[in-house]
Design a protein around this nucleic acid. Sequence first.
DNA 1: ATGGTCTCCTGTCTGC
DNA 2: TGCAGACAGGAGACCA
Length: 257
Amino acid sequence: MPELPEVETLRRQLKPLIQGRTIRGIEIFDTRLGDLSFLTGEVIETVNRVGKMLEFILSSRRALTFQLRMTGRLLWQEGYFIPSPHSRFALSFDTGTLELIDPRRFAVITLGDPMDFCPPLFPSEEDIPYIMSLAKRRKITIKELLLDQRLFPGLGNIYACEILHAAHLSPERKACDLSQESWHLIWEVATPILKKAISRRGTTVSDWRDLFGLEGENQRFLMVYARESKPCPRCGTPVVRKKIGGRGTYFCPTCQK
DNA sequence: ATGGTCTCCTGTCTGC
DNA sequence: TGCAGACAGGAGACCA
């Protein structure tokens, strides 16, 4: 399930391959995506990331946006193009073909106006008072709040769990109850976690592969996510998995308070 | 405005 | 061994 570090990995790998290149052909294997064949001939001006979305800015000043959701993958193929199993869509360039693979067909591709800005990896420290003031009015847990894409664009289940572990905070804490100190702790740990995950080309716990079909490396460094019953690397207590806000959540019941 | 539930979808896992 | 049903969950729709 591609989150910020995974989508950023795709963006960095894809940009040099397609920037300035002309779309030579489009193949749609899943009609749910709609008819995008009229994009043939467009030039990719740049490739941006907005949260978990990948955005191709086109020469017509429109933006082609990919939301990979749960099982969406992008794969780059050179030479003769052979659609993979669960292929839904392909864009061909002189240099190769970009394929959208998505067994569960949750991914969506939309054409619209370019976003006016690309958010940073994590909100600025100056935004803490604003986010605290919003959190004060919410009854949900901090874990659920971290998944709110309007506040933390790009954050998903894996990194929300890892950030809360690094900050020694229980995912069950109510967002409205967190002290300023706790919020600063979240800020302190979040960006390094995301940066490291990007440098390791993301986290492969099941489906995730990079643009060239390779697994990421970050799964080897996870502290809690997908580590149910295994010892917390910090205190040795078995990691607990619990559903919070409908999502599987991993945490250490001893050192996350 | 907020929070709860449902939907989309199919591969994989679990239990009988 | 085989099959049915549960489960996985990002994000949007919908309702109270």
